Amino acid sequence: MTAVATGTAQVPAAALNALTVATAIELEPKGINVNAVPGGFTRSMLNGYAGKETVR
């Protein structure tokens, strides 16, 4: 998982990624998959469709 983040969002994103990877490694022998979906910006009418889409 690669997260695109800026500023103070980078540290929590990296921590979530590290936690996800560590949990996946620990639970893999038991046949359990671990996934994470990072939060991100959503264009909507409320923000005038501002911003740009990024590929993660």
Rank of each mutant, 00 (worst) to 15 (best):
M1P: 12
M1I: 06
M1Y: 02
M1D: 08
M1S: 10
M1W: 00
T2P: 12
A3Q: 07
A3R: 02
A3C: 12
A3K: 01
V4L: 15
V4C: 10
A5R: 11
T6E: 02
T6M: 00
G7C: 05
G7R: 03
G7Q: 00
T8W: 03
Q10H: 00
Q10K: 14
V11M: 11
V11I: 09
V11Q: 13
P12V: 07
P12I: 08
A13F: 03
A13L: 04
A13T: 06
A14C: 07
A14W: 08
A14S: 13
A14F: 12
L16T: 08
L16M: 14
N17T: 15
N17K: 13
N17Y: 09
N17E: 14
N17F: 09
N17Q: 15
A18V: 07
A18K: 08
A18G: 13
A18P: 00
L19P: 01
L19H: 05
T20K: 05
T20Y: 02
V21R: 13
V21F: 07
A22F: 04
A22V: 01
A22G: 10
T23I: 01
T23H: 02
A24T: 10
A24N: 11
I25V: 11
E26T: 10
E26M: 05
L27K: 04
L27Q: 07
E28F: 04
E28S: 11
E28D: 09
E28R: 14
P29Q: 04
P29S: 04
P29V: 05
P29N: 06
P29H: 06
K30L: 13
K30F: 15
K30V: 00
K30S: 14
K30Q: 14
K30A: 15
G31A: 03
G31H: 03
G31T: 07
G31F: 01
G31W: 02
I32C: 11
I32W: 13
N33T: 14
N33F: 07
V34N: 02
V34G: 01
A36Y: 04
A36F: 06
A36L: 11
A36H: 09
A36Q: 11
V37I: 15
V37D: 06
V37A: 14
V37N: 14
V37P: 01
P38A: 15
P38G: 13
P38R: 10
P38W: 07
G39T: 13
G39A: 14
G39N: 15
G40M: 02
G40S: 04
G40R: 02
G40K: 05
G40A: 07
G40W: 01
F41K: 07
F41A: 10
F41Q: 04
F41G: 04
F41R: 06
F41D: 03
T42W: 00
T42Q: 04
R43C: 01
R43W: 00
R43H: 00
R43E: 11
R43S: 12
S44V: 03
S44W: 00
S44K: 05
M45C: 01
M45E: 14
M45L: 08
M45D: 10
M45H: 09
L46R: 08
L46Y: 05
N47V: 07
N47K: 02
G48I: 03
G48D: 08
G48H: 04
G48N: 12
Y49N: 15
A50M: 08
K52F: 05
K52G: 07
E53I: 14
E53V: 14
T54F: 05
T54P: 01
T54S: 03
T54M: 03
V55L: 11
R56Y: 11
R56G: 12
R56D: 13
